[in-house]
Design a protein around this nucleic acid. Sequence first.
DNA 1: CATGAATGAGTCTTCATTCAT
DNA 2: TATGAATGAAGACTCATTCAT
Lengths: 188, 188, 188, 188
Amino acid sequence: MRERLINAAVSVFSKKGFYKASMDDIAAEAEVAKGTLYYYFKNKSELFKTVVVEGINYLTDELIKIVNNSNDSIENIMKLLIKKNIDFYLEYHELANIVLHEITNGIDEDVLNEIITAKDRYISFLADLLSQGYDQGIIRYSNFNVTAAGIVGMIDGVCKYYLRNASSIDRKQLIEHVSNIVINGLFP
Amino acid sequence: MRERLINAAVSVFSKKGFYKASMDDIAAEAEVAKGTLYYYFKNKSELFKTVVVEGINYLTDELIKIVNNSNDSIENIMKLLIKKNIDFYLEYHELANIVLHEITNGIDEDVLNEIITAKDRYISFLADLLSQGYDQGIIRYSNFNVTAAGIVGMIDGVCKYYLRNASSIDRKQLIEHVSNIVINGLFP
Amino acid sequence: MRERLINAAVSVFSKKGFYKASMDDIAAEAEVAKGTLYYYFKNKSELFKTVVVEGINYLTDELIKIVNNSNDSIENIMKLLIKKNIDFYLEYHELANIVLHEITNGIDEDVLNEIITAKDRYISFLADLLSQGYDQGIIRYSNFNVTAAGIVGMIDGVCKYYLRNASSIDRKQLIEHVSNIVINGLFP
Amino acid sequence: MRERLINAAVSVFSKKGFYKASMDDIAAEAEVAKGTLYYYFKNKSELFKTVVVEGINYLTDELIKIVNNSNDSIENIMKLLIKKNIDFYLEYHELANIVLHEITNGIDEDVLNEIITAKDRYISFLADLLSQGYDQGIIRYSNFNVTAAGIVGMIDGVCKYYLRNASSIDRKQLIEHVSNIVINGLFP
DNA sequence: CATGAATGAGTCTTCATTCAT
DNA sequence: TATGAATGAAGACTCATTCAT
């Protein structure tokens, strides 16, 4: 049942965002009584946190698997990660919108902290990878966390644009394009 | 008076975001009666739209001025724009958070469209610059809009990280760093 | 309007008590929208406090007036006060039930404190009178506050019994009876 | 088991009162599942009634024992009863508060009647004693029930004051004081 | 006997919006 | 122009109660 509620919550939060999503909506989506939500989750913030934290952790774990199962070059791994990220984003875009951003209002402090922790784990994972590349002499910059945050932000911005103007470019090109910018920069 | 209301609204929306900001808050901040807000703006969405659109346009106009008044290389202009962007973001970060992101919920459709229009103008402006660089052979990629969206997203992600972990890097370095990644990529 | 809301609240709280009385009930009784209640009172506790504090203070002030305007003996004043108290009690009995007893649960601490303060003023007033009687040598005991609390408790107990079994005794006798016990004790 | 549930209920109702006490609280206190409560008691009112009625009856039976086992004078028995009452009150004061005053709304009519019956038995017992005293010519008034209710009310008022201001008088004095007023009145 | 998951009616509270002045 | 009292719809949350196991 918990699973079912979370799925409903993902769906509704994705479509409506934190504020516009009502507990009624989510209960209706899950086809349960509203009380059931409160049987499993203390309150709306708690439910939201669960969705977001599990979302981020799912993504992070997927990425970790890719890295662990690959003997490829850092460059190719990087490309794969970017692809995976973009795929995730485009699949659950509103959720990603929520997951990848700060939602500093209306959520209990402690709940927010858990979200930030999950997010930091995600950024740190990317930063680690960058750090490895740096040690191998194939990445130039040492501000790994900032760089990681920047990459995620770029993916975010690009996906959002893509979702608004889907026709102007195809998905494969999008991934390729982001990979190129990240890896080679704009200037030749 | 209208000016005064908008300033109050910027301040409150910046601090609290769209949902948590109440018309009472804004009226109190402006030191007027709540009814006055409705005398000048049809409703909350309308007021929000005004703030956001004027915010984006202000930023865009600032950037346009920079470009028009400069004879510098595209590379240097690019750096300046990035700096300006980051400065704007860090100064009005909550507002920027709103301005730079999709807030697709709880706002009237038509009002939302005006926000998107302003945002597109901003992205287009950056894309134009990239296009010029492309024509001069100093930028590699031709998906100008996507690239522009990506740059804005990266700035966004980096600033957010910076605001959470301000001590780990200094502002000048931050700007430098983003400029470098955008211009030269991660790989040497 | 505030007056009107308080009157409605007195009526509803009197009939139903703090918990069973809903803000809907009170709004309906006052024939206003529920929001209006919240325009004048921060919340249910605040409204309740207002009713109780004003109730106690009203009663206290009435009693003070009696004392100040009378040249009668302490004994006769005492009788008058008992009469006034019983009349008040029987008129607003559920309210009196609330007013005279602690409601230690479910009410905000600070609000509760204001209620206790008002109550203490009432007890103190009676204690003062006893103290005067003591100084004049016509009252035996010096634990004035305890005695005052005891008298109020007795009135309470007697009135409650009366309300449950109204037929067994008439109101005038009730007042007479309490006065006698208080003044002369049970034993001849 | 039933015993165990009642003990838990006494404890929780005593601390929180009827409304604030939840069936969850009571189940937790008894360390059973919530359903178990409903296996033994039809509903919350029923459980509450059981607690209250058994409480009153326990007290009444204790008092009856005292009277039956004593050859003392009415006066001394009276004092003992007052002492016992005050002791009971101060030990289970919140419960006593409920027994004597709990708002009678929101409890099923029939359940309420059983509470009143138990209460009346208690009052009647005291009234009987007064009646005996009257027959022996050592008590002046013949409104026995009203007088009994008044005495109980006085005990209530005095104990409550004592609980709020415990330091101002000692317990033995409190008992003495109430006995004196009841027996001799305020006026010499 | 005992459980505890599931329910849904009921309540408080917020706040954008209106409108008479 | 400007006010602010009044509104009422909407939403989060509680909790007594039921029932299948």
